[in-house]
């Protein structure tokens, strides 16, 4: 069979599967879609005009969200660097690497909100639980990104430094960390951006931050309040994203030079 025919069959199968799942999700039913769309319009209508009198409370909660994201990200980062050191194939035996990767894989399968629930049970309601939840989730992701970055370091740099007879920790400190520094910082900033969003919903399970207010306004049908909260969160996320983007592009520029 010709390659073009095989491709056509594959595309056909993917399209059929997509349409099948769309149908199963109720997305091909025009009545459901029309009803839903009408409700969305009504819901948006209830949101206007936003209530600005609650802004001081919202800003305090938003600050708490940023605090949770910042502290959780840094805490996760501090644990992920040594874990990535032990999880790197170029530094440790396959046994050590497998153990670390298994642990990290298990940590990544738990969603951040579930970590929030676990830590609320352990430490009670509030931002302590949220911060630890964000940190646990960050460890799972950053460790994986970091050991992959370490393994991508030019093998000739590794060989040249290793050939001096230095210790493993020296190799890590003087070759692997400096060579992957840009990736380390770039991924850390990306994780911080991501964690701002993750922290925003931590409040849904009582783990502090703006999410607590969002859930409250939804439950009390106070959609104007909710809209103010969403707007404030949006502005905050955009500001942090743009700062992070600038820093990251500066890092990439330095790397090119």
């Amino acid at each position: 069979m010709k390659i073009i025919q095989v491709r056509k069959i594959i595309y056909g199968l993917i399209t059929a599967l997509f349409l099948f799942t769309m149908g199963r999700m109720g997305l091909l039913n025009p009545v459901t879609l029309a009803d839903g769309w009408q409700r969305v319009c009504r819901f948006v209508g209830y949101m206007f005009p936003p209530r600005m009198d609650i802004l001081p409370d919202i800003l305090i909660a938003l600050l708490e969200t940023v605090e949770i994201a910042f502290t959780g990200t840094i805490l996760g980062f501090l644990f992920s660097i040594p874990l990535a050191f032990f999880g790197s194939k170029i530094l440790f035996s396959p046994f050590v690497v497998s153990v670390v990767r298994l642990l990290i894989g298990a940590m990544r399968t738990v969603p951040s909100i579930l970590y929030g629930v676990i830590f609320v049970i352990a430490f009670g309601l509030g931002k302590t639980a949220g911060t630890l939840g964000v940190a646990a989730y960050t460890i799972g992701y950053l460790t994986k990104l970091y050991y992959e970055a370490f393994e991508a370091v030019d093998c000739e740099v590794i060989e040249a430094v290793r050939s001096t007879g230095c210790r493993r920790l020296h190799l890590f400190r003087f070759a692997i960390i400096p060579e992957s520094a840009n990736t380390i910082i770039s991924q850390l900033l990306f994780m911080f951006e991501y964690n701002i969003r993750a922290s925003a919903i931590m409040g849904f399970v009582g783990a502090g931050g703006i999410g607590y207010y969002m859930l409250g306004y939804i439950e009390m049908l106070q959609y104007q309040h909710l809209f103010t909260t969403l707007l404030a969160t949006l502005v905050c996320v955009m500001v942090i994203d743009s700062i992070s983007l600038r820093v990251r592009s500066k890092i990439l520029d330095t790397e090119k030079k």
């Binding site: 030019d154 060989e159 040249a160 001096t164 230095c166 210790r167 003087f174 400096p178």
Partner: peptide
């Protein structure tokens, strides 16, 4: 024995002095 690989194996983000000092880490 000192080894210099084809692409030299220097750490680009470090200075000439820091790269030289790598030789005495042992």
């Amino acid at each position: 024995v000192a080894y210099i690989p084809q692409t030299l194996g220097l750490v680009r983000s470090m200075t000439a002095l820091e790269n030289t000092l790598i030789g005495v880490l042992r």
